[in-house]
C-alpha cells in the first residue's frame, strides 16, 4: 500500500506524518493488519498496520522472556577435550573476559547479549501490560521512550552467529556439543522479530496519552492544555 504525498488538495481528517528519513509530509491512511506504508519519495516504511498491537506484543514478549530464561539456564556449547569438559553459557563469555582483566569488553558483551535484551523485554511488559487495562504504570512514557534507545544494543541475532562460528572453529580440535540454550536462542530471534513487527509505537503512545495513571485519582487525567488530539477532537 502506497501512501500519498501531501499535495494540499485533500479534505477530511488526514493522519499527517513526516517521513523519518526524508521529512516528506505524508497523509497516512488507516492500514490493514500486516500492511506497510512506504514513503513515496525514499521508500522508508512510515507505518505498519498492527492490529491488537498490545495483546499480541505482550504475548510474544512473554514467549521471548521464557526463551531468554531458558537460553541463560542451560549451556550454549559444551566442549570435551583430553578428559576435560567445559560448558559455556551466555554469561560465561563476559565473566571470563572480566577475569582476564578486560572490563571494557566484558561490559560490551554483557550489555549487548544480556542486559539490553532483558531490559527491553521487561520494559515492554512494564509499559504494555497495564496499558492493556487502560492504565499507565509510573513513568511509563519515560520507560517506553528509553526502550527505543535500548533496542539498538540488543544483539541476540549477532551473538548466535558468533556462537555458531565458535562452534565450527573448535569442532576441528575438540568435541563440541550444542546445548539447549543455543536452540532457545535460535527460537528467540524470530520471536523478537515478530514482537517488534506487532508493536505499533504510535498506538502505544496514543494510548499512554489517554490512559489513567495508576494510583491516581481517575477523575483528573493530566493533560497538556494546548494539546489537541490528532483526530481533531478537543482533549477531555
Amino acid at each position: 500500500m502506497a501512501a500519498r504525498a501531501w499535495t494540499g488538495a485533500h479534505d477530511g481528517p488526514p493522519h499527517l506524518v513526516a517521513c523519518h528519513d526524508c521529512d516528506l509530509l505524508i497523509e497516512l491512511p488507516p492500514l490493514a493488519d500486516g500492511a506497510a506504508a512506504r514513503c513515496p519519495r525514499c521508500q522508508y516504511v512510515i507505518g505498519r498496520g498492527a492490529h491488537e498491537t498490545i495483546e499480541r506484543t505482550v504475548a510474544l514478549t512473554v514467549a521471548a522472556l521464557i526463551l531468554f530464561v531458558a537460553a541463560n539456564a542451560f549451556p550454549l556449547l559444551t566442549m570435551r577435550a583430553s578428559g576435560n569438559e567445559t560448558e559455556a553459557t551466555i554469561l560465561s563469555g563476559s565473566r571470563i573476559l572480566w577475569d582476564q582483566d578486560n572490563g571494557g569488553l566484558a561490559a560490551l558483551v554483557l550489555l549487548t547479549t544480556f542486559v539490553a535484551p532483558l531490559a527491553h523485554a521487561l520494559a515492554m511488559l512494564y509499559v504494555l501490560v497495564p496499558l492493556g487495562f487502560g492504565l499507565r504504570a509510573p513513568a511509563a512514557a519515560d520507560v517506553f521512550r528509553w526502550m527505543g534507545h535500548v533496542r539498538v544494543w540488543s544483539m541476540a541475532e549477532v551473538f548466535v552467529l558468533g556462537v555458531l562460528v565458535s562452534l565450527v572453529k573448535l569442532a576441528d580440535m575438540a568435541e563440541i556439543v550444542p546445548g539447549i540454550a543455543l536452540w532457545a536462542l535460535g527460537l528467540l530471534i524470530p520471536t523478537l522479530t515478530a514482537a517488534m513487527a506487532t508493536l505499533d509505537p504510535d498506538e502505544v503512545w496514543d494510548r499512554l496519552d489517554r490512559s489513567v495513571e495508576m494510583d491516581a485519582d481517575p477523575v483528573e487525567a493530566p493533560r497538556a492544555p494546548e494539546a489537541v488530539r490528532p483526530d481533531g477532537e478537543a482533549a477531555p
Binding site: 567445559t86 559455556a88 563469555g93 558483551v109 551473538f159 558468533g162
Partner: peptide, 14 residues
C-alpha cells in the same frame, strides 16, 4: 560484533 563474540566464546570454552 561477531568477532568479539567469537573471542568471548572461545575464551569461555577453552
Amino acid at each position: 560484533m561477531v568477532d568479539i563474540y567469537v573471542v568471548a566464546m572461545l575464551a569461555a570454552l577453552v
